[in-house]
């Protein structure tokens, strides 16, 4: 900052009343964040699946993937959660598959880390996101507290399909990002 600007701002700021940092704003308490996450995501236009076990998840995946010709998969997704599909660059793939770092129940939000690669999160028209139950938190401040010690170049918070109401006020999906977002809950994964 130039000394001149700093001095000007300092002189102005000192004249203003400082109420101090506020204590946290009150938040509703969610007793069942996992169910809340699913409800909110569906409200936002996303799809939510909660298979009873790993085998059921795998069976669901194979059936789901049969509808696509190609995929791009984040390196954080273990082999057991990759379908038998041809891979393609994110620019061409029909399906992107990733693993969320965290999920926020109150807004139905999946938090994606750029270290898994960003294009697979954004460019394919359909995005499948796996989330472990242990990584679901109740609200956004709690999520940010967990993220703060280890921030990647970019975190993406995705709360549903890409949307716009800029065309005559009518909502359309899949404007730039994925028009279809599917989130599937999984049991804890083995470390990679």
């Amino acid at each position: 900052m130039t000394g001149d600007l700093r001095e000007r701002i300092r002189r102005a700021a000192v004249e203003l009343e400082d109420p101090g940092l506020p204590p946290p704003a009150p938040r509703p308490v969610y007793t069942d964040p996992l169910t809340r996450l699913g409800e909110r995501l569906v409200t936002n236009g996303g799809e939510w699946h909660r298979p009873p076990d790993q085998a059921a998840a795998r069976a669901w995946l194979d059936e789901f993937a049969a509808g696509f010709a190609s995929m791009t998969v984040s390196k954080n997704v273990p082999a057991s959660l990759r379908p038998a599909l041809a891979t393609a660059p994110p620019e061409q793939a029909e399906l992107g598959i990733g693993l969320a770092r965290l999920a926020v129940a109150e807004s139905g939000t999946l938090i994606l880390d750029s270290r898994e690669g960003r294009k697979s999160q954004l460019l394919p028209p359909t995005h499948l996101i796996w989330i472990e139950a242990a990584n679901i938190v109740a609200d956004l401040p709690a999520a940010l507290e967990r993220l703060a010690p280890d921030l990647p170049a970019a975190l993406g918070f995705h709360s549903g399909p890409s949307r716009s109401a800029d065309l005559g006020g009518i909502t359309v999906l899949g404007v730039h990002g994925p028009g279809r977002v599917i989130v599937v809950l999984i049991a804890p994964l083995e470390p990679l």
């Binding site: 946290p24 921030l151 970019a154």
Partner: peptide
């Protein structure tokens, strides 16, 4: 950073009534 946990949901609600904008980027 944690202030964004309340400010961004409030911004979203005020702007469009959403609980949070559909995409948030936190670029560090």
């Amino acid at each position: 950073l944690t202030d964004l946990g309340t400010l961004l949901p409030l911004l979203s609600r005020a702007a469009t009534g959403q609980r949070l904008g559909n995409y948030v980027s936190l670029i560090s």
